[in-house]
């Protein structure tokens, strides 16, 4: 009798198992498929862009040294893209030089100087800034900034300066929000220790808060740079799109993204020019990956 009861319990424990097991298995599989879709999309993106970008070199139409020279003349089949790449770097670096101090200062303001007021006003401000589409930034740059520079500062208006200013506003919210996270994660006791030693607020911010938050702040700046480097339309609209040497603020230049945006639709896939645009896309992709690795390196050092 007792033995029977025991078997019936064992049976009872097992009966719903099969149904439950399959239900769980099915659900788990759905999520597994979802993440594999993400992985496969990314891997195929990397593969397609890489193979397409390497094509002109593998076909022997252009050599790497030609590609990395400054001799650009598509009519004459010269595709030296050095100035274009430098253009991307210049506009990114200049925008970061403006935006990083401003963004970090704004983050300090929100966390250390006036947390209540700062959060209430600056937080929504950055959220709205981040939501403004890049064509709108480009449109404002084109219709407000470019004529203004042309009239009052110098040159025709298009060029490095206009690109820099537009980008510096665009990457500002990125830098602010990540800097705020970094500064907020500095333990309160560090600040108290500093004030207890008689330091002023500025000394505490400069010597303790910013120093401790440095890896996070670096992440913020690098992410901002990555965003600036990859931004296409807003830059294309104000930069002028002539592949000049990018060392003068007032002459029109080109960047990798502006070149692709401008010409991808106007060339046919059989042209070398078109294939070179894909190579530029590959360079853009690789530099973006370098930025991501850099961020990983910074954050890993902080965790260690």
């Amino acid at each position: 009798m007792e033995k029977n009861e025991k078997t019936s319990l064992a049976v009872q424990l097992q009966t719903p198992a099969k149904r439950m097991f399959w239900m769980e298995w099915r659900g788990r599989s759905i999520t597994y498929i979802s993440v594999w879709i993400v992985i496969l999309v990314l891997l195929s993106l990397l593969w397609f862009i890489t193979s397409k970008g390497l094509q002109p070199f593998l076909n022997g139409e252009v050599t790497l040294s030609q590609f990395f020279s400054s001799n650009w003349n598509p009519q004459d089949n010269k595709f030296g893209s050095l100035y274009i790449m430098l253009g991307s770097f210049m506009v990114t670096i200049c925008a970061t030089i403006i935006s990083a101090p401003l963004g970090i200062s704004a983050a300090v303001f929100m966390t250390e100087i006036a947390p209540k007021w700062g959060k209430k006003v600056l937080q929504p401000t950055t959220e709205i800034l981040v939501g403004i589409p890049s064509v709108v930034y480009g449109f404002i740059g084109l219709t407000l900034l470019v004529p203004f520079i042309g009239k009052f500062v110098g040159g025709v208006g298009f060029g490095l300066l206009a690109g820099t200013l537009v980008l510096s506003i665009m990457i500002l919210p990125t830098i602010i929000s990540i800097s705020v996270d970094a500064i907020e994660s500095v333990p309160q006791k560090y600040r108290e220790g500093s004030y207890a030693l008689g330091a002023t607020r500025w000394q505490t911010i400069w010597r303790i808060v910013l120093k401790t938050a440095l890896p996070g702040l670096m992440t913020a700046v690098v992410l901002g740079m990555a965003r600036a480097f990859g931004e296409a339309l807003a830059v294309q609209m104000v930069i002028g799109n002539v592949p000049n040497a990018p060392f003068d603020f007032f002459t029109s230049i080109s960047t990798l993204t502006s070149m692709i945006t401008q010409n991808m639709g106007n060339t046919v896939p059989s042209e070398t020019f078109n294939q070179i645009l894909w190579s530029m896309g590959l360079v853009l992709l690789l530099i973006t990956l370098v930025f991501i690795l850099l961020i990983r390196f910074i954050t890993r050092r902080r965790d260690a």
Binding site: K6, L9, A10, Q12, L13, Q14, P16, A17, M20, F21
Partner: peptide, 20 residues
């Protein structure tokens, strides 16, 4: 063991056990 049944046996599914 619950009523003599090993609850970590392969045939036991946690959902059935937790109902019990």
């Amino acid at each position: 063991l619950i009523d003599g049944v090993n609850i970590h046996a392969d045939t036991i599914h946690a959902t059935g056990l937790r109902k019990h």
